[in-house]
Simulated assay, not measured.
Amino acid sequence: MITFFIGDSLTLGCGDEAGLGWPGRLASAMMHHGQDLTWYNLGVRANTTTKIRERWKEEVTRRFLPGQNTRLVFSFGVADISNDVPAKASFDNAEAILSEAKALGPTLFIGPMPVGDQDRTERIIQLSLGFESVCERLGVPHVPVIGFLRESDAYASALEAYDNVHPAAKGYATLAEYLMQTHAAREFLGLD
């Protein structure tokens, strides 16, 4: 199986002193579950949905192996808020990205994460709700994470430990553990 994790700096794992982010932890769980896995972290720092829309397909295509079980996991949105991308543009980009991705292989969307600033987090919540609507309309499985992470003391302390946008390792571990408890992620990643 080939799995691509595509997104911004929170997909890349910025701030994680272990160098894994949440994608590395999920990939590790998949391999421990016995999967023959090749995985790629295609997170890029400060990438808005506009930038991801421009680059993701070419990057995946360069690594694509015909005949392989290919899965695509997307997570984005926080960079859109940080860079004042209008919500409509974010939703249009998400729809274009996820529609095209579905044509290549099974696709999963992980919602955006909260940050240390309450006002920005409120804007991220609204973005997350819009992304959920896009996913439901397209039939793309999705895992909203912002509600859980906002209530998590471990995630909040991990945000404070780094830069209040990206968590330290403990925050990425908290997110990965949560994802591995959700039916949508477990089923999609073959962990059931």
Rank of each mutant, 00 (worst) to 15 (best):
G34W: 01
T50L: 04
Q118N: 06
S133Y: 02
T50G: 11
R25G: 13
T48D: 06
C14D: 08
V134Q: 00
R25C: 08
P23F: 05
D36H: 11
V140Y: 07
D117A: 12
L26M: 04
N47W: 13
P112I: 07
E100L: 03
Q126E: 13
D36G: 05
G43K: 10
T50H: 06
S133R: 12
E58N: 10
H32F: 10
C14P: 02
I81Y: 05
N41E: 02
G77C: 03
F76K: 05
A103D: 09
D16V: 11
R55T: 12
F76T: 10
A79H: 08
T48V: 00
N69L: 03
T121Y: 00
Y40W: 15
R45Q: 09
D16E: 00
L98K: 08
R62P: 02
V60A: 10
R71V: 05
I125V: 15
D80K: 08
L138E: 08
N93S: 08
P106F: 00
T61C: 01
I81W: 03
P112D: 06
I97S: 07
T11Y: 03
L26W: 06
I110K: 08
I125E: 14
L127G: 03
G43E: 02
D84H: 15
A46V: 01
D36Q: 14
S99E: 11
G67V: 05
A79V: 04
R137W: 05
G21M: 00
G116L: 10
T38G: 07
F76C: 14
S75I: 07
D117H: 01
T70D: 03
E132Y: 02
L127Q: 12
G67I: 04
V140N: 00
S75T: 13
A103L: 14
N93F: 07
T48W: 01
Y40S: 06
A94L: 09
W22L: 10
H33Y: 02
N41P: 10
E100Q: 12
S133A: 14
P86Y: 08
A46T: 04
K51C: 04
S99W: 02
W39G: 01
L127W: 03
K88W: 06
L72H: 07
A79D: 14
I110D: 11
I125K: 14
